[in-house]
């Protein structure tokens, strides 16, 4: 299972970084999404991977899953969801106001996409 989780994090991070480097709003938003998924799974793994164990310490003791990373992941999911909404809205506004979906700023700059169409 360690291999499965580790490789899933690796693939999602790699894909996320690749999409980020496309520097167009739509791939960048998708890339950020993948990156936050990778981060969330990674946060789970920081409490060590435990299967079939409750997230509380029972009266008898025994194995338990670390509850703290789960709380962190919940918070991270909420925040990243809100942030994704913010960047989508801003990307849309940038598209409507300047007709460009470029992320990087060049002075004089690339021709806006709409002109090319």
């Amino acid at each position: 299972m360690e291999f499965l989780v580790a490789s899933a994090i690796a693939v999602m991070t790699a894909a996320g970084v690749y999409l980020l480097l496309r520097l167009r709003t739509f791939p960048v938003v998708l890339g950020l999404g993948l990156l936050t998924y990778a981060v969330n799974v990674f946060l789970f793994a920081t409490g060590r991977l435990v299967v079939h164990a409750p997230a509380v310490i029972g009266a008898a003791g025994g194995t338990y899953a670390d509850p703290l990373p789960q709380a962190l992941v919940l918070t991270a999911i909420v925040i990243s969801f809100g942030m994704t909404a913010v960047i989508v809205v801003m990307a849309l506004r940038a598209w409507f106001e300047c007709g460009s979906d470029q992320i990087d700023l060049h002075e004089g700059g690339d021709a806006p996409l709409r002109e090319r169409e």
Binding site: L20, T25, V28, L32, L35, T36, A38, V39, F42, L43, A45, T46, P69, L72, A76, I79, S80, M83, V86, I87, M90, A91, R93, A94, E97, C98, S100, Q102, I103, D104, L105
Partner: peptide, 24 residues
């Protein structure tokens, strides 16, 4: 607005890195 999109994007990447570092 364009500068704003860039600013949001760089800070979202920064936030992801922050979470990875805190997790480590």
């Amino acid at each position: 607005v364009r500068a704003g999109v860039q600013y949001v994007a760089i800070n979202l990447v920064g936030s992801s890195l922050f979470l990875v570092a805190v997790g480590l």
